[in-house]
Structures are given as C-alpha cells and as structure tokens.
C-alpha cells in the first residue's frame, strides 16, 4: 500500500441526482468510483491522482439489464457477473457473455462494472470490441440531461473518450438483431485466467451463399483505443468465400487489417506479434465462415 488513505475523500451521495449535481458544480473535482477494480489498484501503487472520489456503486437504478424495443439495455453498474448470469445475454449476445467471463477472475467480475470498463478506456479492455461489433449506443447522463452517442464515436484516443467531467455513463443499448449472424471472439492473453489481452478480436458476419454480405470486426490492443476494423470490414464486404477465391479473400482481409493495425511494443508483447496474430485470428474467423 503506497498511498496515504487519509489524503483521499470518498463519499456516497444519497441519490444519483445529488451525485450529478456535485459533478456539475465542480467539473473535474471528483472521480466517480464503481467497483474499484481499477482505481483501487492505482491507489495501492500510489498513483491515484484524484483526491476526491464519489461512489456510485450503490445506485441500483444503474444496475439493470432489460429488453426494450428490440434492444438490450444494460445499466452502467451492471457487473460482469450480472452479464454472465443473464439468459438474455447468453442467448442473444454470446460474445458479450464471453468477454465478460474474460474480464479478470471471479472476484473482479463480482465487482467490476461494464460502465467502469468503458470509461477506463484501456486499449486492452475486454468488452469494448464486443460492444463495437454489436453496434451499441451509449447513453451519458449529467445534471443537464441525457445524451446518446454511437459507441463507435465514443473512444477518441489513448484513454480519451467523449465523456465530460460532469457526466456518468448511464447505459449501453444493443440491438437484438444478430440472429443468423456468425459470431467469433478470441482473446490472446498472457495466460488463461487473470490475463490482460495481448490482442483480441471480435467479429460478426452474415453470409449470403458464399458471399460475405456483412461483416463487423472489433479489436483490443491493436491501436491506442478499442477499434472497429473498418478497413478490413470494407475489404471483406461482398467478398467470396468460395473455395477458389477463399485465399484471395483471406489475403485481402489480412492486408486491410495490417493497414489499420497500429499496435505497440510493451511489457506484455510486441507490435509485430500483435499484428500477425490479429491477422491470424481474422483468418480463423473467415475460414470458419467458409465451412
């Protein structure tokens, strides 16, 4: 423990409205804390910058998971355990059930929240690639109201997002529109449990005959933020999976993905490895579509 906890303030506003008012009154003064699985690590190593924190962990109105107009709406306080236990998610959004199961281990999943994973905005985060391919929208809430964005536009750069200092994530909304899509996800981490991803790829695709009618790809640790792999999607949309053109399709997909990959060398892996494995995962997905 390398921090002096007496230097930190933490309170739990009685209501969400009260919390939003506090955030609005002095934007940037407070850091919201939910499950604590990121911020408490920072506290432990002596790197938690913000001295004033507001807990939102107790707001049950942000912990929900419901079906609404052909969508699933997931409150920001929903834990990974909640996601894993949901029959709705398991049935309609299997990739999200999978990515939730890869987020830390059981004890972290019992505490960590979807909202926290999103605003922490790590390029290696497990769940954002899935939200990207599922075409999620994100609703932010502040004292002045709510606004909803395409989740695609939410991440701006390394640990930078559209979230304003007076806002909280309210919920994420995902269309229930993927019956009949082929779905793929694979995380290549440092080990099988408690792993931070070196690279991860999520994908959904709809085929018509041997053609790829639609494909969406999302990746972690491929750039400075979670991304949709739009170049690869473009190169592959309409491409043929027929035996005589499969190799060309694979090469086109790999080449396009290579163009948009900007991975880094860090303590966990190398840029060369990340790029190559991302291409291999894409190929694995495409080959599965051809079967």
């Amino acid at each position: 423990m390398r921090s002096d906890v007496t230097e930190y303030e933490l309170s739990a506003p009685a209501t969400l409205q009260e919390m939003l008012s506090l955030l609005a009154a002095e934007p940037g003064k407070y850091t919201p804390i939910a499950g604590g699985t990121e911020l408490m690590v920072a506290l432990g190593v002596g790197r938690l910058q913000s001295r004033s924190l507001l807990s939102l962990q107790h707001f049950q109105e942000l912990r929900f998971l419901r079906e609404e107009d052909g969508h699933v709406v997931i409150g920001a306080n929903t834990t990974f355990t909640d996601l894993r236990r949901s029959a709705l998610i398991a049935e309609h959004l299997p990739l999200l059930a999978q990515s939730a199961s890869w987020t830390g281990a059981i004890a972290n999943q019992n505490r960590g929240t979807l909202g926290g994973n999103i605003v922490n905005a790590s390029p290696a985060a497990d769940n954002p690639p899935v939200l990207l391919v599922y075409g999620a929208s994100i609703t932010l809430i502040s004292a002045s109201g709510m606004r909803t964005l395409d989740y695609n536009d939410f991440h701006l750069g390394y640990k930078k997002t559209q979230l304003r200092a007076d806002e909280l994530v309210h919920s994420v909304r995902i269309p229930l529109a993927y019956q009949g899509y082929r779905q793929y996800i694979r995380k290549v981490g440092t080990r099988n449990a408690l792993a931070i991803s070196k690279i991860a790829l999520a994908g959904i695709a709809r085929t018509e005959g041997t053609r790829i009618a639609e494909i969406r790809l999302g990746a972690a640790s491929l750039t400075d933020r979670p991304i949709r792999c739009l170049a690869a999607e473009k190169a592959l949309t309409g491409a043929s999976l027929a035996a005589d053109s499969l190799e060309a399709t694979l090469q086109a997909g790999r080449a396009a993905l290579a163009m948009e990959a900007k991975p880094i060398d860090d303590i966990r892996s190398t840029a060369r490895y990340r790029s190559a494995v991302a291409e291999n995962l894409l190929e694995e997905f495409l080959r599965s579509l051809a079967e």
Binding site: A105, T190, R191, N192, A193, L194, I196, I267, R268
Partner: peptide, 10 residues
C-alpha cells in the same frame, strides 16, 4: 499482473 505465473487454468 505482468510477471506471469501459471494460474489454475494454465
């Protein structure tokens, strides 16, 4: 987190 010893799943 970054020195990787095997977990029960490895």
């Amino acid at each position: 987190t970054n020195y990787i010893m095997p977990t029960s799943a490895d």
